[in-house]
């Protein structure tokens, strides 16, 4: 199916136009974050601010009375730890479910898959009670634990472990290597791109999570960024330029991570979804 050049140019223009529509909310956000409040709602929209107010706005958000930087730090802490632990748990389980042969493996795997269908909200209330009872309520350790046992991560990594030829494993077994050595020495290095994919996704999901911090944290000093932005919006009700500056600050790290790992993420999701 060769496509002629004019057709290609036309479809690029069409896709570009739709793409701009997709980006408009982000461009508006960015532009509003760099204007004085009075210019935010002028119409026609000043996409490029007439009066620049970027430094003042971002300074107000980051160094004002509101502990924005503190919430940012909380989010970094929770997200990095969740991602690290979750990768360990999921890659171990994925290896166990694909490369170790033992009785009951398929049954356990089925159980794990079934729990994927359970909407997290359907178990929120008993989880909350359990957390209060175990003393995990209102602390970061509890919040981190909530996202550490990921079915989707295990499923994704298992798809990739299945792709490793069993001969690799068998010959290492014959050489006397145990499963743990094969796991760390052979299997994990071979699926490194998939682990990167999952790490990026888990980072994004945890960073953006609003529901779990809302339910499982009470003390304001423990708030993560998403709760922080909400509170910030409540406090600064009508100051949309500041709210947009906060929103931009929350999205930038994700965008950087995503652009750096773009190839990995897109391939990883495709593999997990298509071959699944």
């Amino acid at each position: 199916m060769r496509t002629s050049q004019p057709v290609k140019i036309v479809s690029t223009v069409v896709m570009g136009a739709i793409g701009v529509l997709f980006l408009l909310p982000f461009l508006w956000m960015l532009s509003a974050s760099m204007k004085p409040e009075l210019d935010v709602f002028t119409y026609p929209i000043q996409w490029i601010p007439k009066t620049w107010h970027a430094v003042e706005n971002y300074k107000m958000v980051w160094a004002g009375d509101f502990p924005f930087a503190h919430y940012y730090w909380n989010s970094i802490k929770v997200t990095v730890l969740t991602t690290a632990i979750s990768i360990m748990v999921s890659s171990m389980a994925a290896y166990g479910f694909s490369k170790v042969r033992f009785k009951g493996r398929e049954a356990w795997f089925l159980l794990v898959l079934v729990t994927f269908m359970v909407p997290s909200q359907a178990i929120l209330v008993p989880q909350f009670l359990l957390y209060r009872w175990l003393g995990l309520f209102d602390n970061h350790a509890g919040l981190i634990l909530l996202n550490c046992f990921s079915v989707i991560g295990t499923f994704l990594l298992r798809q990739f472990f299945l792709g490793i030829h069993n001969d690799y494993i068998e010959s290492a077994r014959i050489d006397g290597a145990g499963h743990f050595r094969i796991f760390t020495g052979i299997a994990v290095p071979l699926v490194r791109p998939a682990i990167a994919t999952y790490a990026i996704l888990r980072f994004i999901w945890t960073w953006n999570d609003y529901q779990n911090p809302l339910i499982f944290l009470r003390s304001e000093s423990l708030f993560t960024l998403q709760l922080g932005i909400r509170k910030f919006a409540d406090v600064n009700g009508e100051f949309y330029s500041l709210i947009m500056a906060a929103a931009v600050s929350a999205i930038v790290p994700l965008l950087l991570i995503f652009i750096i790992g773009q190839k990995n993420v897109i391939e990883g999701i495709s593999m997990g979804g298509v071959k699944g």
Partner: peptide
């Protein structure tokens, strides 16, 4: 070794999903 590998995930899912579901 199989159970050691899948153990952490299974325990987590049991405690955080299956038990709450029944409760």
């Amino acid at each position: 070794s199989g159970y050691i590998f899948i153990g952490p995930l299974l325990i987590g899912i049991m405690v955080l999903t299956v038990i709450p579901m029944m409760a």
